[in-house]
Nucleic acid binder design. Structure first.
Length: 506
RNA sequence: GGGCCGUUAGCUCAAUGGCAGAGCAGGUGCCUUUUAAGCACUUGGUUGGGGGUUCGAGUCCCUCACGGCUCACCA
């Protein structure tokens, strides 16, 4: 345990004096008849004729956010989950002992309970005229001294607690002093609820599949490895849900989805966190065209539910989430922004040569698919501000997707882009077990392979597929990115309660 | 992993290589309708850690840690 700071020592001394004065600093129970919002609403609904006297009986509870001592009377603000309310305390009403205890021994950050009637002050604020108060929990450590007041409907913030490292490391303090941070996570909960509501309404079944997996797959990422001691078995934290959800289609569950955490042992960036929330669904008898239409409808439903509208401003740009997103074939997009016709170069060597001729440098060991991805990422993505489906991807970077009839080099796959980043990825799923095995082998897998570049072959997945898998469309979406979009946050860390940070020596 | 920038009081920030400061928070008083309340006085620092240059380092150099942005990585 570290040493207490001077400020903490002062509060610990107050804590002892409170006990002596008969204020239990951590009582087991609180009583509350109204939230601050309920109290204010009740007063507004039934306004008294004499607004300068206290009316009604309200008991509220919350954290002390401001104290203004004016001699024998004191104003304070408390904040609860619903809002804030001003308290008015007078020595006449409370007695010398109790009044002095509040003034001398209560601090910003303490949780208190206060009872009394409501009145309107000279300056027009509805305020609780306190007849009784209790301490509910003493704050030993002072919260970061952020000041924030609403004046004329304008929120003014003073000395905000805004150092990103401190805010993420001590998210509890961030939440305690920055109400707008709490709003992000309220929005996040509404977003995931709206996704579930939408998919449930479409007849999808929410399921839970293993996070600890003996083999990993379904995405292009390195896994975290762990170990089961009793079973003497290495296990991987899942990098996707895909292979398990599609096993369920074999089992006769026709529409399934899962919202949960994926873990990818990759770089951290403004749009990547080692653990992140994914939504995947699989839909028997549908193809990627139907999945596109469902995606548009789902995103619009979430916007309707969470924002009440389908247009939003993301980082200063207007985004329109109405269905009818353009379908842009990947080759056309690349041609549009680079002038390169990738269809004219069916081999990696040929495409690399054409790129070099345009001054675009790439790793000469790249496969053709990797080169295409680089062109997409470097030249096309940034232009996809309005929602856009990029469709029809190279087969060699899409081992789980079904080939497009008449064009075996291209698969029925789409990615949804909004605000210049990838939001979702989906395809008409490959359900031919022989083709699937061939694809795995093409990817460089064999039954023993397990390296950075090649994933182990999931024989059980092939076994499932051999029993017969209905044709289906599958979909995956980074939920954190959807939350970023709908809350106008530029980094994924702002929409994760506890984003990954390197550990710090204590 | 690379590049750039940053780390000073509880919080937000100042400080030509020359006495480490302000506002808020805290403490002691005054103040019975304030709301960034006000007024007076006041406490608080291993300037992220370590090393170096210098008469003298918050400031310059090296190094380590952590963070931010960015690039790379992410079939």
């Amino acid at each position: 345990m570290r040493e207490y700071t001077e400020l903490e020592k002062i509060r610990l001394a107050k804590l002892e004096r409170l006990r002596t004065a008969g204020f239990e600093p951590y009582p087991p129970r609180a009583e509350r008849t109204h939230t601050t919002a309920q109290a204010l609403a009740a007063y507004a609904q039934n306004p008294p004729t004499d607004t300068h006297a206290a009316h009604g009986a309200y008991t509220v509870a919350g954290r002390v956010k401001a104290i203004r001592v004016m001699g024998k009377s004191t104003f304070a603000h408390i904040e609860d989950g619903a809002g804030r309310l001003q308290l008015f305390l007078r020595v006449n009403d409370l007695g010398e002992t109790a009044y002095r205890a509040f003034v001398d021994l209560f601090d910003l950050g303490d949780f208190v309970q206060a009872a009394g009637g409501l009145f309107t002050t000279k300056s027009g604020e509805v305020t609780l005229w306190v007849k009784e108060f209790r301490l509910l929990a003493k704050a030993v450590s002072p919260l970061p001294a952020a000041k924030e007041e609403v004046v004329d409907g304008q929120k003014r913030v003073y000395s905000a607690f805004d150092n990103p490292e401190a805010r993420y490391r001590e998210r509890y303090a961030d939440l305690a002093v920055n109400p707008e941070v709490r709003d992000i996570f309220r929005a996040r909960a509404r977003i995931t609820a709206a996704l579930r509501q939408f998919l449930d309404g479409q007849g999808f079944l929410e399921v839970e599949t293993p996070i600890l997996q003996p083999l990993y797959g379904g995405a292009a990422a390195r896994p975290f490895v762990t170990h089961h001691n009793q079973l003497h078995q290495d296990l991987y934290l899942r990098i996707s849900f895909e292979l398990y959800l599609k096993r369920l289609l074999v089992g006769g569950l026709e529409r399934v989805y899962e919202i949960g955490r994926d873990f990818r042992n990759e770089g951290v960036s403004f749009k990547h966190n080692p653990e992140f929330t994914q939504l995947e669904f699989y839909w028997a008898y549908a193809d990627y065209e139907q999945v596109m239409r469902l995606t548009e409808a789902m995103v619009a439903h979430v916007a309707d539910t969470v924002l009440g509208r389908r247009t939003l401003t993301y980082q200063g740009r207007e985004i329109n989430l109405n269905p009818g997103w353009p379908r842009l074939p990947l080759a056309d997009g690349i041609a549009q922004y680079t002038g390169l016709d990738i269809n004219a170069y069916p081999t990696a060597e040929g495409l690399l040569g054409a790129m070099e001729a345009k001054g675009i440098h790439a790793d000469p060991k790249s496969t053709r698919g990797k080169l295409v991805e680089k062109l997409l990422g470097d030249f096309v993505e940034e232009h996809l501000q309005q929602p856009t489906f990029i469709v029809d991807y190279p087969r060699d970077i899409s081992p789980l997707a079904k080939a497009k009839p008449g064009n075996p080099a291209v698969v029925e796959r789409f990615e949804g882009y909004v605000a210049g980043f990838e939001l979702c990825n989906a395809f008409t799923e490959l359900n031919d077990p022989l083709d699937q095995e061939q694809r795995f082998i093409e990817m460089g897998r064999d039954y023993a392979a397990d390296s950075e570049d090649t994933h182990p072959l999931d024989e059980d997945y092939l076994r499932a597929m051999r029993y017969g898998m209905p044709p289906n469309g599958g979909f995956g979406m980074g939920v954190d990115r959807l939350v970023m979009l709908l809350t106008d946050k530029a980094t994924i860390r702002e929409v994760l309660l506890f984003p990954h940070l390197r550990s710090r020596e204590e």
